[in-house]
Design a protein around this nucleic acid. Structure first.
Ligand SMILES: [Mn+2]
Ligand SMILES: [Mn+2]
Ligand SMILES: [Mn+2]
Ligand SMILES: [Mn+2]
Lengths: 228, 228
DNA sequence: TTAATTTGTTAGTCATAGCTAACTTTTTTA
DNA sequence: TAAAAAAGTTAGCTATGACTAACAAATTAA
């Protein structure tokens, strides 16, 4: 009913702010998101964010009280979800058809997600036979805008003796992703926590019949499903 | 030797101006291109063009004397060719893999041609097995930046009794392209000029064992190869 | 419960890339 | 060859989206 034809006449910047706010609100599971937090996430100044938030409020995509926290409206959310859908579909295309590695796709997808064409993205989805997950293990929102959050259990949250399966990785850092590949980890890898060292919280893990030591920082960026 | 690694840090606008100038100079076979001509082609004001030309001159991509005609430098040309390559490869991808019709691809390709990733375009080329022509019959420049101009003989330039083959169409207008398809013409169609009416230069053509009458304006946008 | 710190806002600046209006130079036409 | 027309330039304006510096409000710590 309230589903008015979305003209999609938002700028790249407006789209990026909406997506970032959504990711802080939903993905990273923050209860409240402040202006400066959003600024830091987007690597712009608090003044720039304040300015854009004002604009997005008048357009009806964001709500907040003066000096208060930010939230997306019911009009703002689907815009963010569509961007995430586009981003993840392009990443999948680049990996599965154009020989990109998972550390190469994010930056190009950041550009491609802003291409304006409904048909383009729907056809890309069909062409790839409606993939469910992107190269980093994240769930791709479907054409209806349904968004499912992958439970984000980090490798660092497990205890000695636990066994788990790698379900996703944080796709933000190229060096991190290269590192993950280099030591032989990939989606679906089975990992056992051998030991957590008290001194520096470094973790000895076993996978592929080999043992590696990783830092807590590394383990914070690896998402797993605990096995029984 | 002078082939310094091109950082490709041009804006979308700068790219569009260089491409437009190239198309006026090379494709449309104009001997000289003026400021206002470029402005009209890009649908911006002469003042805007003057401004951008100034910028592109200081960057070394364009040359001109005050009140004189515009030309591209040896640094400017390959940038334009790369854009045309990207544009036509994307159009081909959209048509051949994503179920776009030839009247739907141009606008989306205008956006996609500005995506910055050398790997993306080279891999797209490889994925499609190095296509030679785009959906409108235009030659796609190769990865080495070699540009071949298709001889632009218009259907309107032929005489009564001549026979020809459709090799390309002007891709600028959606309604024109739809019209071409609707009457049953396509790349490689064989066409015979049955009659050219003196009164309004309208042309009766025969193809697929049927006869159609088209205007001179229509025939100006159809490019052919004359058959013996 | 006051002071310090953090968070958010405002004002003013800059770059890019459009625009119109006015002006100058060049070219064409009478 | 002088006037008119066309082409090119300049000045000054606008919008977007960055920035810094200064300030105000809210939160946290002393
Ligand atoms: Mn990504
Ligand atoms: Mn983006
Ligand atoms: Mn085109
Ligand atoms: Mn373009």
């Amino acid at each position: 009913m309230t589903n008015k034809l979305n003209l999609n006449n938002l700028t790249k910047s407006e789209e990026d702010y909406l997506k970032a706010l959504f990711q802080l609100l939903i993905e990273d599971g923050a209860t409240k998101v402040g202006n400066n937090q959003l600024a830091e996430y987007l690597k712009v100044s608090p003044a720039s964010t304040n300015n854009m938030v004002k604009k997005l409020k008048t357009k009806g995509y964001v709500v907040s009280e003066k000096y208060g926290k930010l939230d997306l409206t019911e009009e703002g959310k689907p815009i963010a979800v569509r961007l995430i859908r586009k981003h993840r579909l392009w990443e999948t295309f680049l990996c599965n058809y154009l020989n990109f590695t998972w550390d190469e796709v994010h930056d190009v997808a950041e550009q491609l997600e802003h291409i304006k064409s409904q048909k383009l993205i729907d056809e890309l989805d069909r062409f790839m036979d409606f993939p469910q997950k992107d190269p980093h293990g994240e769930i791709i929102p479907n054409a209806d805008g349904e968004y499912f959050v992958l439970p984000k259990i980090t490798l660092s949250s497990l205890e000695e003796g636990d066994t788990c399966q790698l379900v996703a990785v944080n796709d933000g850092s190229v060096t991190f992703l290269k590192y993950v590949s280099e030591i032989g980890l990939a989606l679906s890898s089975e990992i056992k926590i051998v030991e957590i060292r008290e001194f520096d919280k470094s973790i000895r893990i076993e996978f592929n019949n080999a043992i590696e030591t990783v830092t807590k920082k590394f383990a914070d960026n690896v998402f797993v499903k605990k096995l029984v």
